[in-house]
Write a protein that binds this DNA or RNA. Structure first.
Lengths: 337, 337
DNA sequence: TTGAAAGCGCTAACAT
DNA sequence: ATGTTAGCGCTTTCAA
């Protein structure tokens, strides 16, 4: 293992000079710099992470807490995680992967051990039990998701309320008066996950404003669950002509069942999905959708965190503006026969 | 921040005693141990990770390199990653998330800096450029996936060749004589990803043995791509009665299109999928499938790695035996009209 | 069974 | 512009 001292000797300079060449924290003459860089290359030197963390009081590691749950749409989580990792690298940070399993203990462990300099939490609940800990520490953190009380916290999230509103607006604008919402699995609501409830709020308040009726039904993924849900919806509201789907694993089943029942999309019923663009374009009908900007969320979370680590920027809630893309699954409401 | 020295003082013992209480590397009298543990709790002490890594020469971190690609089935990657993280924790390790982006450089960086004690690589190609580096270092590693040459390497993977064979065997046993294989996206083959090629080998050699014909077609996911592929298949082999699908995002489109063409599953055509069980049971027809044991792969990778770190166990290739579950999508081949 | 003390490799004053 | 040096908090000999 090559040490800084060896590099120093090889280059004929002192250890601190090598250190400063590396950190750029003081000016170095061009010639020494080159000699040092040359030695570093020749010896294949890599600074020891532990020693650095110990002496410098920063590990250059960001912890990322991902949920274990399988009732969230996994590709979105993965996309966020990867965006976090790659963005972090561009700022010189590595990412430590923590699963939700350890819960609040993980926060304590990471904070206490100096393992990471900061952390990003995903899948935040409205009353998340990790929040008191975060507020009580000086370790910078960013939440992806919005808890009920954001005091003293930095959060990044899609503006789910606006997302819901946007969906209703689109359908209402097309003349739909009776809208059904296929929501996330019941467990997601029971857990009081912010995004699900906020979407619903946005949906409902815009419905009120535009005078359309909204029927919301949570739904597990898969065909069987959706068949049941759909039957109930048409039973209760036979005049339903618009659907908003928030559960990715209900998208394809919904399209299949509508087809099977002889209801044409978008002639008889319109469908608006809340999902990643990729899902929208790969579906059997190209879906009008509001995109979930997973990458952007991961990227912004890191940018905010790095800003805090650098002493710039403070607490703040960054809500991403939703964008609706019109595709083939939505059209004017059918005129009554 | 609480230090070991503070704990020692609080407990009225020396620093080394506290250290040994923590590591258990020498016997401590019951009373001292309790006093120390008490102090640790009272002060909320957490050992400093950097100092530990520096002095102990082990970071207790395992690096996990995940691919950036989106042409692999993402939930499987995620499930592996989470299994790695949770299993690692049970052995006292944390997991550092590296993306494939940095490529071989990441291996150098992690090895050189002592950031991680060991690493797990996912999405290994047959001739992976990271392998020479791994062979040339004493840092333990485990591959999830099988390269062409496994000399000096430890690998964990599903036995894809046996998986392919199993699929053909099942269909052949039901009397199918003409089988089509819907494969992964062309890019996956071009990249020479081991699992895709091996599956094909297994498929073909068992086909030869059982005297069935196999037509293999790579396929991007989504409806449009699959529609094209399917048309060509029936064009070329009108007598096709069995399908093996390896691309998850082709599963649902395939079922939809078959339905649409009036081909009943399993009466007219049988479908066997290679996918996680969850996908198989959530599909519109419950699929006969060979499961991809994502969790098990992640878990075993960590177990092997920990064994190497502890000086137990050496290089070794662990192939998981595939298991086929018969569900509703496969049945006897239709008798010729 | 316990203590004392020498580093681990690096950073950041403090000097010059 | 560069060198000297005192730690950072822990592990692990070496001693008792």
């Amino acid at each position: 293992m090559v040490t800084l001292a060896e590099v120093a000797q090889h280059a004929g300079v002192s250890a601190s000079t090598v250190s400063y060449v590396l950190s750029g924290k003081r000016s170095i003459s061009a010639t020494t710099r080159q000699r040092v860089e040359q030695s570093i290359r020749e010896l294949g030197y890599h600074p020891n992470a532990g020693a650095r963390a110990l002496a410098g009081k920063r590990s250059n590691i960001i912890a990322l807490m991902v949920p274990l749950r399988t009732d969230m749409y996994v590709p979105v989580m993965m996309e966020i995680a990867i965006a976090v990792a790659t963005t972090a690298r561009t700022h010189g940070y590595d990412v430590l992967l923590l699963t939700g399993e350890e819960g609040p203990d993980a926060v304590r462990r990471v904070t206490g051990s100096g393992l990471a300099d900061a952390m990003i939490l995903m899948d935040v609940e409205l009353e998340d039990e990790r929040l008191p800990l975060l507020r009580g520490t000086d370790q910078p953190s960013v939440l992806i998701g919005l808890p009920a009380d954001t005091t003293g916290l930095t959060c990044v999230d899609l503006d789910w309320s606006a997302t819901g509103a946007l969906c209703v607006e689109h359908l209402a604008g097309l003349g739909h008066r009776d809208i059904a919402v296929i929501g996330e699995a019941p467990a997601v609501y029971e857990r009081h996950t912010g995004f699900a409830e906020r979407t619903l709020d946005g949906l409902r308040s815009r419905a009120r404003e535009t005078g359309v009726r909204v029927l919301h039904r949570p739904c597990e993924g898969g065909y069987d669950a959706l068949a049941l849900t759909l039957a109930r919806i048409f039973d209760e509201r036979p005049g339903t002509t618009g659907f908003v789907v928030q559960n990715e694993s209900a998208v394809e089943p919904l399209l299949a069942l509508l087809r099977q029942q002889g209801r044409a999309v978008p002639e008889d019923v319109s469908v608006v999905a809340i999902c990643p663009d990729q899902v929208a374009v790969q579906a059997s009908v190209r879906l009008t959708s509001v995109a979930i900007p997973a990458q952007e969320m991961g990227r912004q979370a890191v940018e905010h965190l790095v800003a805090k680590l650098d002493g710039r920027g403070g607490d703040e809630v960054a809500l991403l503006t939703p964008e609706l893309t019109v595709r083939a699954s939505s059209g004017p409401a059918p005129t009554a026969p």
